[in-house]
Simulated scan of single mutants.
Amino acid sequence: MTTVVELEIPADRLGLARTFDHVSAFEFRIGGMIGGAPPLVWTGGPDRTTVRQALEADPSIDVIASVADDGDAAVDETGAGPTDQWLFRLEFGDGVKLFEQLVTENDGAILSARGDDHRWILKLLFHDRESVSACHDLLEQYEFGADVRRISGVNDLATARTPLTETQYETICKAHEQGYFDVPREITLKELAAELGISHQALSERLRRSHAALVSAELSERSAPMEIDP
């Protein structure tokens, strides 16, 4: 079944980490990244000059072109009018090229990529769950630090019930069953980690992400697709 995967990867593994360090509120957005040509990248920040200078000084990329002149205002994708974003054509380095290779070799495609707060968020399309698992294993092997935010079948969106991944859901259920959320607690974090066969640190991070996903879903007031870890 065709599967859409949303991943979060640190910028220092893919690129633009130096730009994030030097430009407050820097963000970017890319459409599809399939093909050999350097992609067009919408960028945002305090002003165009600051963003351009930071990009030009970033060793993880090459600025191929600034698509509009400095005095031109960008127009958003709907044609609605000027925005505070600027368009560049960027050549990314080895991190992105290796990532693209791993996705493509597993019959995947990069639908979109965006970034803020020193991270990339990518949406990938795969033909089946086996390809998802194979690609995820390789991303771990090459230490991309990929965090699976969401996995859904294209036809599953209407029936989704929870924003949690399967692993997060199972962890929350286990924690509840063992009395971790009781007052006072009936099991410590260390003891729960031993029950699950993972490290204290891994469990702490998993619970934090689970709580964040649940709070975000509650506040958004909209349903989210069920996520299943590869």
Rank of each mutant, 00 (worst) to 15 (best):
Thr2His: 00
Thr2Trp: 05
Thr2Gly: 06
Thr3Cys: 07
Val4Phe: 00
Glu8Asn: 04
Pro10Asn: 05
Ala11Thr: 03
Asp12Phe: 04
Gly15His: 00
Thr19Gln: 06
Thr19Asn: 04
Phe20Ser: 00
Asp21Met: 08
Ser24Glu: 12
Ser24Gly: 08
Arg29Cys: 01
Gly31Trp: 00
Gly32Met: 01
Ile34Gly: 10
Ile34Cys: 11
Gly35Met: 09
Gly35Asp: 03
Ala37His: 09
Pro39Asn: 02
Leu40Phe: 09
Val41Met: 03
Gly44Ile: 09
Gly44His: 02
Gly45Phe: 00
Pro46Gly: 12
Pro46Ala: 14
Arg48Phe: 02
Arg48Thr: 03
Thr49Met: 15
Asp58Arg: 00
Val63Cys: 11
Asp69Tyr: 06
Asp69Pro: 01
Ala73Trp: 00
Glu77Phe: 04
Gly79Gln: 07
Ala80Thr: 09
Ala80Gln: 07
Gly81Met: 04
Pro82Gln: 10
Thr83Pro: 02
Leu87Trp: 07
Glu91His: 07
Asp94Tyr: 01
Gly95Val: 08
Gly95His: 10
Val96Tyr: 01
Lys97His: 05
Glu100Gln: 06
Glu100Cys: 10
Gln101Met: 11
Leu102Thr: 01
Asn106Tyr: 00
Asp107Ala: 13
Ala109Met: 15
Ile110Met: 05
Ser112Thr: 03
Ala113Gln: 02
Arg114Met: 12
Gly115Ala: 12
Asp116Met: 12
His118Met: 15
Trp120Ile: 13
Leu124Trp: 02
His127Ser: 12
His127Gln: 07
Arg129Tyr: 06
Glu130Tyr: 03
Val132Tyr: 00
Ser133Glu: 14
Ala134Ile: 07
Asp137Leu: 02
Gln141Ile: 10
Ala146Arg: 00
Arg149Gly: 07
Arg150Trp: 05
Ser152Arg: 06
Ser152Met: 12
Ser152Trp: 04
Asn155Gln: 11
Asn155Arg: 13
Asp156Thr: 14
Leu157Pro: 08
Ala160Phe: 10
Arg161Pro: 12
Leu164Ser: 02
Thr165Gly: 13
Thr167Gln: 13
Glu170His: 14
Glu170Ile: 05
Thr171Tyr: 03
Ile172Ala: 15
Ile172Thr: 05
Lys174Met: 15
Ala175Thr: 01
His176Lys: 15
Glu177Thr: 13
Gly179Glu: 15
Phe181Thr: 02
Phe181Leu: 15
Val183His: 04
Thr188Tyr: 02
Thr188Cys: 11
Leu189Gln: 14
Leu192His: 10
Ala194Ile: 12
Leu196Ser: 14
Leu196Lys: 13
Leu196Gly: 12
Gly197Asp: 14
Gly197His: 08
Ser199His: 08
His200Cys: 06
Ala202Phe: 02
Leu203Arg: 01
Glu205Lys: 05
Arg206Lys: 08
Arg209Asn: 08
Leu214Pro: 04
Leu214Val: 09
Leu214Thr: 08
Val215Cys: 09
Ser216Asp: 09
Ser216Asn: 09
Ser216Trp: 00
Ala217Ser: 10
Glu218Asn: 08
Ser220Arg: 06
Ser220Gln: 10
Arg222Asn: 09
Ser223Trp: 01
Ser223Lys: 10
Ser223Gln: 13
Ala224Leu: 12
Ala224Arg: 07
Met226Asp: 11
Pro230Lys: 00
